[in-house]
């Protein structure tokens, strides 16, 4: 089935383009906002509205389109000029509907020439060494930037930051996940095998450093390699993900002081800073909106909802009341 192309007002695109792209000086912050990933209440939040933006600064292209795995891979869909007050702005846009929970690669076709998206910092390199631009939609649980072993180490580290590892909490989470009804399953499209017994914080971090905080990706890559090396040095007999808890608590405490015996400070000079970033990301992952990949199905919020009740057994964190359906129960807010 061909992808659905959506028709949006020019102002919709300009609301993003002017702030982030219109400028005289080069951008200093990563332009992770593109392509624009927006919600689709009209589709019960089963898809995103994905808007590609191309900015022409010289001679306007005579043909401009997008091709990618979200559609038939080798046919470009034409982009439309974005106008203001009847005049061209140099911006071109295309909005398509893409199901949630997916990862795609794409390129622009500019006057017949395949071109990586010059705005979006997300890139992926295939086995055949070809480079593509990349995006992913909400509720994505495919790994984007971390390898399996990196997920495993992060999961163990995060276990020492967040309270979701003790038996009571695990029992709660198991019940919560088992009890999710069909209408909530969308929030956890790929199931929980990857999320282990926690609430998906590591999946969230994978998505965050793939996009909004892409500037922290090198830090993660270097520090996880360093941690893997250190753990293997301290315990040559087990894989890091199978090592006893004490290896991780020791490491955590050492990183908190900034003094980690055996750490290669010339590779990364501030392990305490990495811990600070990781702790912030872990908390965000547990309690941010589930569309970002953590707090699966609202599990982090549901933990607080269940933990904090009044003497009548009514919750003291009725988070669903404010939020859109089907995640929440608000009759007015569409999300």
């Amino acid at each position: 089935m061909a992808v659905q192309v959506l028709s949006l007002d020019d102002d919709y695109y300009l609301n993003f383009c002017t702030k982030h792209l219109a400028r005289n000086n080069p951008a200093k912050s990563p332009l992770w906002q593109f392509p624009i990933i927006d919600t689709s209440p009209d589709d019960n939040h089963l898809s995103n509205k994905v808007s590609f933006i191309y900015q022409s600064t010289g001679t306007p292209p005579s043909e401009i389109g997008v091709f990618g795995t979200f559609d038939t891979l080798h046919t470009a869909i034409p982009m439309q000029a974005v106008n203001f007050d009847g005049q061209s702005t140099g911006f071109y846009a295309l909005t398509v509907r893409v199901p949630i929970g997916e990862v795609h690669r794409y390129q622009f076709l500019v006057d017949g020439q395949p071109t990586l998206d010059p705005i979006n910092p997300q890139r992926t390199i295939l086995d055949d060494k070809t480079e593509w631009s990349r995006f992913f939609t909400d509720y994505c649980s495919y790994p984007i930037v971390f390898e399996e072993w990196e997920y495993a180490i992060l999961r163990r580290l995060v276990d020492h930051i967040l309270p979701f590892r003790n038996q009571d909490t695990q029992n709660f989470l198991n019940r919560f996940y088992d009890g999710l009804d069909k209408s909530a399953q969308y929030a956890t499209k790929e199931g929980f095998h990857r999320l282990d017994a926690s609430v998906g914080e590591v999946n969230y971090i994978d998505k965050l450093v793939a996009r909004q905080e892409i500037h922290h990706l090198p830090t993660y890559k270097i520090c996880l390699r360093e941690i893997d090396r250190l753990l293997r040095q301290r315990n040559p007999f087990e894989e890091p993900q199978d090592m006893a808890k004490v290896y991780y608590t020791d490491l955590y405490e050492q990183m908190a002081t900034g003094s980690v015996p055996g750490w290669n400070y010339s590779a990364y000079n501030n392990p305490n800073y990495f811990l600070q970033v990781l702790r912030r990301h872990a908390v965000l992952g547990a309690f941010s909106h589930p569309k970002y990949g953590g707090n699966a199905g609202g599990a982090g919020w549901a933990y607080l909802e269940s933990k904090y009740q009044d003497s009548q057994g009514d919750t003291l964190f009725d988070w669903r009341a404010a939020l859109e359906r089907p995640l929440g129960t608000n009759p007015d807010y569409t999300g």
Partner: peptide, 14 residues
């Protein structure tokens, strides 16, 4: 405040 307090984790977080 949060990132500067590494002791705020696990049971302490609860």
């Amino acid at each position: 405040g949060f990132t500067g307090n590494a002791g705020l984790r696990g049971d302490n977080l609860i």
